[in-house]
Every structure is written in structure tokens, then in C-alpha cells.
Design a protein around this nucleic acid. Structure first.
Lengths: 247, 247
DNA sequence: AGCGCGCCTTGATCCAGATCAAAGCGCGAC
DNA sequence: GTCGCGCTTTGATCTGGATCAAGGCGCGCT
């Protein structure tokens, strides 16, 4: 698997707050879809990559927009969400470096995407990607595998939203962040929690007040410690695990 | 697209309550994955199909079982669910004819599958299917498309579980059943609701009592009528639509 | 420094839906 | 038929988390 960086087409900014730069900031190696690709596949892929930088709180696209672009997060954290007409919001997922957005079959996005922190993404025109998939079935398989594991995560989240109480939700959330950090080779404890209370609430189907109170409870019971800089130390993974699974 | 039926290997029953019969009961055409396949692809697929009949309430497989088989529902309704250690249950989906189960990348199933009504399914050994996918990229694409649309449905369900109230959940549920019936060419109104109150409750993150009361409320407000035989008439789709979207 | 604005926390109260309890109501077995 | 069992409905009560309300705290801006 190549670690080399690939030069990419520079492109003018597409919106006021989006800064498009060459792809050096976006090594192809960060895209998990590309592992197991051959050199010529990588080369061809690199040709259509464009790196995009956004501030925190930037809306990349909104539910219903034409889905002509596929993104891969290379730095920062993104959130995906759906809204009800009256403004109620459900965050369906947080994306970390390596994750994809816009893997839609339909011609419009099924959710909105917004940055939680300043973020960098790779952009692919979807049309060109599709041509690529025709030629390289391995990539097709990788995409399918990713969709499958997203689906599994979605099912876990349904169990959480439908049947877990507030404490179990928060414990599950922290363990998930910890596990994801571990798998990406970052420090998994203390966990970095870059998102706001209100984002956490909208992800877990709670309110900010309940999220805040539950953090306080877990802190009081010594299960976790709240550190500065949005870090949370998990003092006893096993206790949290039991909590999360509702044992 | 072929409508012809394909002969299949007969196989002895794999469990007391499972009745395995030739594939005449399971025309290939019922598998949505096969549309757009060529004749030789269909023929090869037919070679590995086995039809399986189960009673209502039969557990096809449980979460954690080795995932060596892929199923396609050809008749009846199935439910997929996850359990917490203390028995709380979340049903993550109901499957109608044409839907797939066991589309897992992992080597164990991520959920349990049980029949809601008597059901018939097609069985594929997963290993043989994988060989097939290597050779026929179109099928790969179809599978990816299916996973994508399941993912979109899962995100809708997260919005429902995280942010909708009981009335909105029931309205959304009925509209979903109606829409699925319509797309399959069945009567969409009245809708056939084959699952028990407790299955509905575990799908919508409610209790049987709340489901029952909410049906009664909707009936009292004339939005729906409860007919015999598990049928529900949607008296005013538009009112229900507004309810479902929380407008 | 002082101001303003977003967050976050904490407290008081409320309420939708859970829980507990008790009938109905089919329906299959005998 | 009638017995028993599982499913559904309905009623009474309870409660976890929502809602309403008020500060506190950090941070960027002037």
C-alpha cells in the first residue's frame, strides 16, 4: 500500500468559506477505500482528488442537495444529520478521518453534513468515481464493505435510541469514541470529545441538559473524569462497558 | 428479465421446523438483486438456490451465529432484532418478499432473524455467492445499491427513534408499510399489518400499551380504521403524512 | 479591562410514555 | 362446549427525561 503523496488538480474555491488546495494535504493513503488497490488504480484515483478545507460549523451540503460529489474526511470531525420540519434534529453519525460522506445511490443527499471542528476533505466528482468503479471491482467491494459496517453501526444506534436509558447512551457513546480512536491509532483514553453537548444530545436522542447532568453523574460516581480541552478520561472501561450494555 | 422458474438442488431439512423444498416455490425473479443480470448469470445463480419454509415465530439465526448463509425472502414477513443482556429488544427492520438477510461482511450475524408469519426464503451458501460476485460486477453493484438504501432507511429510523413522539412514530410506521406495499405492487390501502403490537413496539421504541393506545387515538380521530385480519385503513394519507413529519 | 455571546451547568417543575394491574377476546386443544 | 393461554385493550399511577428558568464560565472582540 503506497504511502506516497499524489499531486492533484488545483481548483478555485467553490464557496466563500471553502478553501481548496492541492492534494498534498490529502495523501491518498488516508482513504481506507484505497487499501488493496494496485498502483495504476491509485494513480488514476489521485488524478481526480481535490482537497477541501472548511472551518468549524461549515455546512458542506444539505439534505436534498444534488449529490454530485463524494467526500472523504482527511482531518477533523464532521457530523451528518436529518431535520424535521419543526427543527428537531437527529445526528446520524460523526465522521472521523478516513470516513466517507455522500456514498449515496440516489441523486440527492439523504442528510446534511456539517463540520464539527475545522476539517479537511477529499472531493471526488461522483460521475468520475462511477467510471472508476466499473473498471476496478476491488474498489466496489471495499465500498460495499464500508456500507455494510455503517449499516451495522446504524443498527447498534437503533438499539441505543430505542431501548437504552440516558446513562447507558452516554457510556456507549464514550466507548464508541474510544474504540474508534483506538482503531485509528490515536490515544483512546482519555478520549477526545470535540463535539458540543447539543451535538451529543442530538446524536443520542437526549437534551443538552440531560447530557450535561449525566456527565456530572458519571463524574460523581468516578466512572469518568472531565479533563480540559474536551477530553474525557474513562476511569474504568469495564464498569462503563457494563453500563453501556445495560447489564 | 426472466420470469422462468429454475430447478434447484433438493436438500434435507437442516432443523426440525425447517422444511427445505425445491426452488420452484422460489422463482429467481423474486430476487431484486437479479434484475439486470444476464441469462448465464441467472442460470449460475439458480444452481445454488435452495428454498426454505419456516413457521411463524421461527428463529432463522441468532446474533453471533456464524454467518455462512445469505437469505432472500420470497414469501411472508421476517423481523431482525438485537437484544440487550436484560432482554430489552430492538427490532431493526421488517423484511418483505424480495429483501435480503445476512448481507454481512463479518463472519457472524450482527442481529437475530425470526419469522413474523409463515415464510419462505432462498438460501445461498455465502462462499459460493462470493465467487459469483467476483465474476459478475453487476451483482456487486446491485448489492451495494441495496446496502445503501437500507442505510438510508436506517437513518430515517434513527430520526424516528431519537426525535419523534408516539403518534408520529405510528403514523410513520403505517406510511412506510403502505409505501413498501405499493412499491411491491400489493394493495397499499388498507395496509396489511402482520406483526404483533409487541413487535411494533420493539420496532418503534415504545411499549405495547402505548402502541395500542396510539392506534386507538388515531382511530378515534378518524385518521385510520382498524379492520379485521390485521389490516389498517389509512383514511387520510395527507393528515398521516403531516403527523409523521411532525409538521 | 469590560462587554457580549455561546456554551455549559444546575435547579425546579412538568408530562409523555412507562409501568403496574385488570379485564376482554379470540382461538386452538381437548 | 369450555378451558387455558396469549394477545390486546383500557385504566391508574409513576417516573425519567423534557422543559422552563437562571446563573456561571470561557473567550474573542473592542
Amino acid at each position: 500500500m503506497a504511502l506516497a503523496e499524489h499531486a492533484c488538480t488545483r481548483e478555485s474555491a467553490v464557496a466563500a468559506r471553502i478553501d481548496v488546495s492541492p492534494c498534498n494535504a490529502c495523501p491518498v493513503r488516508s482513504m481506507s477505500v484505497c487499501s488493496a488497490l494496485e498502483a495504476d488504480e491509485l494513480k488514476r484515483l489521485a488524478d481526480i482528488l481535490v482537497s477541501v478545507k472548511v472551518d468549524a460549523g461549515h455546512t458542506l451540503f444539505a439534505e436534498g442537495d444534488g449529490a454530485d460529489t463524494l467526500f472523504n474526511v482527511t482531518a477533523g470531525t464532521m457530523k451528518l444529520y436529518k431535520l424535521l420540519p419543526d427543527g428537531r434534529r437527529q445526528i446520524t453519525g460523526f465522521l472521523l478521518p478516513g470516513d466517507f460522506l455522500g456514498l449515496s445511490i440516489n441523486d440527492t443527499y439523504a442528510y446534511s453534513a456539517e463540520s464539527v471542528t475545522p476539517a479537511t476533505l477529499c472531493r471526488f466528482p461522483r460521475r468520475r468515481l462511477e467510471g472508476l468503479l466499473e473498471d476496478y471491482p476491488k474498489m466496489q467491494r471495499r465500498l460495499f464493505a464500508m456500507a455494510s459496517s455503517e449499516l451495522a453501526a446504524a443498527q447498534d444506534q437503533m438499539l441505543l435510541l430505542g431501548r437504552k436509558n440516558a446513562k447507558e447512551r452516554i457510556a456507549s457513546f464514550l466507548l464508541m469514541l474510544s474504540e474508534r480512536a483506538r482503531r485509528r491509532g490515536y490515544a483512546e483514553n482519555p478520549v477526545h470529545v470535540p463535539m458540543s453537548r447539543s451535538d451529543i444530545a442530538d446524536y443520542l436522542g437526549l437534551t443538552t441538559e440531560t447530557v450535561s447532568r449525566t456527565f456530572t453523574q458519571l463524574k460523581t460516581s468516578r466512572a469518568i473524569s472531565l479533563l480540559e480541552g474536551g477530553k474525557v478520561r474513562l476511569n474504568d472501561m469495564e464498569i462503563l462497558q457494563e453500563l453501556a450494555e445495560g447489564a
